[in-house]
Amino acid sequence: MLESFIKSLAGVPWLELLITGTVKGSMYALIALGYTMVYGILQMINFANGEIFMIGMFATVFGIALLSSLWGSFAAINLILGVVFAVILASAYGYGSERIAYRRLRNAHILAPLTSAIGLSIVLQQFISNVVGNQPFTFPNYYSDPFAWRVVTLVQGNPATGAGDVGISMLQVCILTTACLLMTALFYMIHCTRVGIAMRAVSQDRLMASLVGIPVNHVIAFTFIVGSSLAAVAGTLFSMYTTTLTWSAGTASGLKAFTAAIIGGIGNIPGAVLGGLLIGIIEDFTIAILGAQWRNVILFAILMLTLILRPRGLLGERVADKV
């Protein structure tokens, strides 16, 4: 057993895994940002963020389908407008969830908003599974195929068959670029704009923020909207990348993104990005070395290790325990 394990280790295409892992990780990071922002501002885990990601997935395809029926299939326009549709719809869900399930529980014991969040994520997940269907759907490849060509070939495999080639596809480039752009925009927004100052002020002292004239409810709602939009974009990218849409993807990816947020230090925005990348890379290596069925076990082991060795996360500064 050990022998075969070592043998499989030797044949690992580490460069390829590093690339696919980074791509996957950047999408996890986008979801993790939603978790970490809401946690930073409300000290509460928004479990439903994973489901918003899943809704973003389906909303993209619905948007594209609507537009195709309206004026025909134009790949680029429909895709972009589909993403916009998904972002708007997911933001509406994020805002609605804040309004319905969290706002009245803002000053309550920690158990109350947490329970409500779980209830909400069950409702959203079951809603999609009941309404859209249990079967996994494939992403319409008319829209994802134009991205399939290889931009760079890093390692030349068999020149005749092309087997063993390692390269970066256009889709991967697009995902990485989008993720980088969104993250840069987010950093800029949080550190250099008034909304960002207001968000940080609310996260540090909610009553005082209100006393200096910051409309706290609006700022919190805005945080949810930003987090949901990021999750929705991640949903689109993820469904294009894995080519499947399922109702259970929200829980699966949500758990990973949440683990990423904890590993990076929850409430810490660069931490969420770092954690997301780490989780993505580790996941792909686990799949290649041990097999896909082991990835959640490894994920859980990493989560436990982080909590034992560094409970505040890699970049976290805040004391995790109640102050």
Binding site: M44, I45, I110, L111, L114, F258, L303, L307, A320, K322
Partner: peptide, 8 residues
């Protein structure tokens, strides 16, 4: 740690 860690 905080209560929500146990949950997750």
């Amino acid at each position: 740690l905080r209560g929500d860690y146990l949950a997750i």
